[in-house]
């Protein structure tokens, strides 16, 4: 409705140029569209082909001449424990990290509701992690979680005994530093989103709840949270999508080691394609992931347009 009234002036002004305009507006989107074609749409079509071949660059035949194996790649994937585990692990990482980020962000944001002298400085420092290069964040965590790093040192000081645990080479615990790096780096983003939402909340509704005698907990759950819901759902959506792609910290910290125990989907596919050179097989995995991700996103992306 608002769109229509906003554009109300245009049609009459367009009148004399009608013959020219339609092409012009398409010409404007062409550079963007062609770039997308080259880097996204054409490769997606190539995937469709590669996914049914067993192409390996080491075979010394060009990919377009590769031998089709039809649907065996998908069959293999289904029974490939490493792939299935990577999928499960990725979903686990998304669930845990995003939930932690949201919880921490909500808690943090509530600390910043009132005005106090060094509030702005504190916000600037707390959002520092999201400003740095993810590879560098992982690099820092690589040092922190070294067996001779400060984390082990702090634990030693607390338990009063030498603690030289080798986090990154332990099959169970190697995932912890990766997830901590992820949460550390992206909680600030979630915090900023929630804080923005809280600051834009209609203040008088909160005040009205206060004078009606409601407790802070009741106000938070009955008044603030419902008002925040759109912002939170956008934040969850965006962070889930981003976390699903997690690659940089895994590569820097473990490369999926030890024994594939920290492989996420992205890491699994990288290892498969660029360590074992099974391009066709990985293309099949990529195709699966693309189909699932795009169909899920098409459904979930709607709230983004509704809000604003």
């Amino acid at each position: 409705m608002t769109d229509r009234s906003r554009d109300g002036l245009r049609p009459s002004l367009d009148q004399p140029r009608r013959g020219f305009m339609p092409r012009f507006n398409i010409a404007l989107v062409l550079p963007a569209q062609l770039t997308m074609m080259a880097v996204v749409i054409v490769p997606t079509l190539i995937i469709l082909w590669l996914a049914i071949t067993d192409w390996q660059p080491t075979q010394a035949i060009p990919w377009y001449d590769a031998t089709p194996v039809w649907f065996w790649n998908f069959y293999d994937l289904w029974y490939d424990e490493r792939f299935v585990n990577a999928v499960g692990r990725t979903l686990f990482v998304v669930g845990v990290c995003v939930a932690l980020e949201l919880g921490l962000a909500l808690g943090l944001a509530l600390l910043f509701l009132d005005e106090w002298p060094w509030r702005r400085v504190a916000v600037s420092i707390i959002i520092l992690p999201m400003m740095i290069i993810p590879v560098d964040a992982a690099n820092a965590f690589f040092m922190l979680f070294n067996e001779r790093g400060p984390i082990n040192h702090m634990i030693s000081l607390v338990i009063g005994a030498p603690f030289e645990f080798s986090w990154l080479s332990h099959p169970t615990w190697a995932m912890a530093p990766i997830m901590m790096a992820e949460v550390w780096q992206w909680t600030p983003l979630m915090f900023l989103l929630v804080l923005t939402g809280l600051m834009n909340l209609p203040q008088n509704q909160v005040r009205a709840a206060i004078v009606l005698g409601a407790s802070p907990v009741r106000i938070f759950f009955k008044v603030m949270l419902p008002l925040l819901a759109p912002v939170i759902s956008i934040a969850l959506l965006i962070r889930s999508i981003e976390t699903f792609k997690i690659f940089d910290p895994v590569y820097i910290l473990t490369r999926g080691q030890p024994g594939g125990s920290t492989e996420t989907i992205s890491m699994f596919m990288y290892n498969g394609a660029f360590v074992y050179f099974r391009m066709g097989y990985i293309a099949a995995a990529a195709l699966l992931v693309l189909v699932v991700v795009i169909s899920v996103c098409l459904v979930l992306a709607r709230p983004m347009t509704k809000h604003s």
Partner: peptide, 15 residues
């Protein structure tokens, strides 16, 4: 932005 870049990396390398 939603698809994992690793998924299109393989065909991009090929292309």
């Amino acid at each position: 932005r939603m698809m994992p870049p690793i998924a299109v990396v393989v065909p991009i390398v090929a292309l």
